[in-house]
């Protein structure tokens, strides 16, 4: 009983064999991905770019949610802020993309610190609700500042013709942008998981008082994790905004993005390095399949999948695969046995 309870939130070891197998596969896959634009249809490149984007978002959420255990339900605020920083600077101030991208990252970090200092004192549901409220509130603020943000009607980045400050990179360009960002996010996660910082986040996740008693500055560690998460998410939002050309607050601050980040991380495996990537790949392709085959039903089915995943696969695919290898079976009902009333 106690053992299965522990397993449900267990954080796998970074140096596990499964991790290394994935590293090997990743290297082979990476070589392919580099040449993919030559081989694949443009439309499929766009889909792949989307998968990379969500994988990055899930990895970013994983740092604060999976490692530190602070379930942010408002990470989309960084995504939206990053996107709007780039759009505003390019459309209103005539900036080119690259410096705007740097500023977007800085905005993500700064906002995470300012918001994190008061809000990271809250725990559990209170933290979740507070972050969610910040994101929703920020959307309303963006809607109501039309002179700067274009308001609810959206803002358009000049992407073609004489007005364009940076020429539009096209599907291939954005494919590479998202691929590079994903690799950065993976490297960051890998680094964190092995570092003292990563250990301090795990300690905070499991017992914050005990962590503080051991000399871990829990406030600083939590804020740093939030800032790192905010940085990666804001950069992703910035690239996404440029790709979309015209962005709207209801899309850029959509709660659905937040939920997707969480669902992907959870389905893949929170607190692991590759879990969020596996979750993002699986869910994005599944979602695409549902959209193409059951256009009307697809969101309903998606809701059902979330419910089933939470009940039967809460340790995530990565952990379950590891279990399958060592015990030759996946115990789908273990979660229910451990956590039911």
């Amino acid at each position: 009983m106690a053992e299965s309870a522990a397993r449900s939130t267990r954080i796998p070891q970074p140096s596990s064999p499964a991790g290394w197998i994935l590293v090997g596969l990743g290297a082979a896959g990476f070589a392919y991905l580099l040449y993919a634009p030559v081989l694949l249809l443009e439309s499929f490149l766009r889909t792949l770019g989307g998968v990379f984007m969500f994988a990055t978002l899930a990895l970013a959420w994983n740092i604060i949610g999976g490692f530190a255990g602070y379930a942010s339900f408002g990470n989309v605020v960084f995504f939206g802020l990053g996107g709007y920083t780039v759009a505003t600077l390019m459309a209103k101030a005539g900036w080119t993309f690259w410096p705007a991208l740097v500023v977007a990252g800085a905005v993500g970090v700064l906002f995470a610190v300012l918001m994190g200092l008061p809000i990271l004192r809250l725990r559990g549901h209170y933290f979740a609700i507070a972050t969610l409220s910040v994101a929703e509130g920020m959307r309303e603020i963006v809607v109501n500042m039309p002179s700067l943000t274009g308001g609810g009607a959206g803002i358009t980045i000049p992407a073609v013709g004489l007005e364009a400050t940076t020429s539009y990179p096209g599907n291939t360009g954005f494919y590479y942008f998202f691929l590079i960002l994903l690799l950065v996010a993976l490297a960051v996660t890998w680094r964190v998981s092995r570092s003292r910082f990563g250990y301090s986040l795990r300690a905070i996740h499991q017992d914050e008082d005990s962590a503080a008693a051991l000399g871990i500055n829990t406030t600083r560690a939590k804020v740093a994790a939030f800032a790192l998460s905010g940085l990666l998410t804001a950069l992703t939002g910035a690239i996404y905004a440029f790709q979309q050309v015209t962005i709207y607050p209801n899309r850029l601050f959509s709660i659905e993005f937040t939920v997707l980040m969480v669902v992907m991380a959870v389905i893949g495996g929170t607190g692991t390095i590759f879990g969020p990537v596996v979750g993002a790949v699986g869910l994005q392709f599944l979602s695409e399949y549902l959209r193409q085959n059951y256009l009307e039903l697809h969101t309903v089915l998606f809701g059902a999948i979330i419910i089933l995943a939470v009940i039967f696969l809460p340790n995530g695919i990565v952990e379950s695969a590891r279990e399958l290898r060592s015990t030759k079976r996946i115990r789908f009902l273990d979660n229910v046995k451990a956590n039911r009333l």
């Binding site: 309870a5 949610g65 339900f73 979740a128 969480v262 669902v263 999948i305 939470v310 979660n335 229910v336």
Partner: peptide, 17 residues
């Protein structure tokens, strides 16, 4: 009730689903 003792994001996700 099946997952009532799971980490909080689980029940949040469940009700979101």
């Amino acid at each position: 009730n099946l997952v009532i003792n799971a980490p909080i994001w689980m029940t949040l996700l469940l009700t979101f689903g």
